[in-house]
Design a protein around this nucleic acid. Structure first.
Lengths: 143, 143
DNA sequence: GTAGTTGCAAATCATTTGCAGTAAT
DNA sequence: ATTACTGCAAATGATTTGCAACTAC
């Protein structure tokens, strides 16, 4: 099988782009970080071990990861773009606590089906979807 | 019954804010414009008839409209915040064409129900939700 | 060697804010 | 009279870009 690293290599090769030390470093950091980090947060994490890495390089590389399908861009309420690892063709939905920002990911094939139906009903094709449910997580309800 | 204008007046009064010419003008422009305009687009429309209106005033007023529940903020793929008129307690979902950006709004009580269930299943309360389906509209599929 | 890449700093884009003058209460 | 509001320009925060030095191919 192909690892994510190989997938990235293949993407770069196809587009005549180069495999650089920075790109490998950023990919590894991305894969070993919690999900939904912003480029800035990733940059801060990276700086510890790689103090000479550039802010712009992180941005540029995250963009490449998104284009190659390895990462997916997310926009939650705030202004920053966040990234999450793209687990193949499956998609999942988000349940977000308005109080503490805790995010739960879940899948739901019934919802999948209804969304597909909704698109068809309006004669749209479906390429992807975004679903976020905002509320209070169990912990915050107790407060 | 109370018109939207009255609703805005009431909100302003409750917060000891003033009913100004600009605020009335912006509210009217917002109500008589297509949905999903950004503050900038609204500003451009307004400028035709009210050349002396300030950019910042439009931003500040849209924020007020959002706080008062008259408008709802939306974030689609791009960087700008867009606004749509808030039609009471109902909510609706968006079907967005990736090619021409045409947006169809729809409601679906089955989806409503499943989202409520999904939140409950994780012991979350539900306050609001965001659902966008991206694909190609009928017209763009033919190209 | 050549073409793509990096890091920096400066630029950009959407949005926000400080402030002096103006208008609503 | 008081207190909030406006318009402008300058400030902010996230992201992008130009460019000269550098590195993968």
């Amino acid at each position: 099988m192909h690892s994510v690293q190989e997938q990235f290599r293949a993407y770069l090769a196809k587009h005549k782009l180069k495999v650089t030390r920075q790109r490998k470093t950023i990919l590894d950091a991305f894969l070993s970080s919690p999900s939904h980090l912003s480029a800035e947060e990733l940059y801060i994490r990276l700086r510890k071990k790689h103090p000479n890495i550039g802010y712009a390089t992180v941005y540029r590389t995250m963009k490449l990861l998104a284009e190659s399908g390895i990462a997916a861009e997310r926009h939650f309420g705030d202004r920053q773009t966040r990234y999450e690892a793209n687990t193949g063709e499956e998609h999942h939905y988000h349940l977000i606590c308005e109080q503490c920002a805790r995010i739960v990911e879940f899948e739901d094939t019934q919802i999948d089906l209804l969304l597909q139906k909704a698109a068809s009903a309006h004669n749209y094709t479906l390429s992807h979807r975004r679903l976020e449910i905002y509320g209070q997580c169990p912990a915050c309800q107790k407060k």
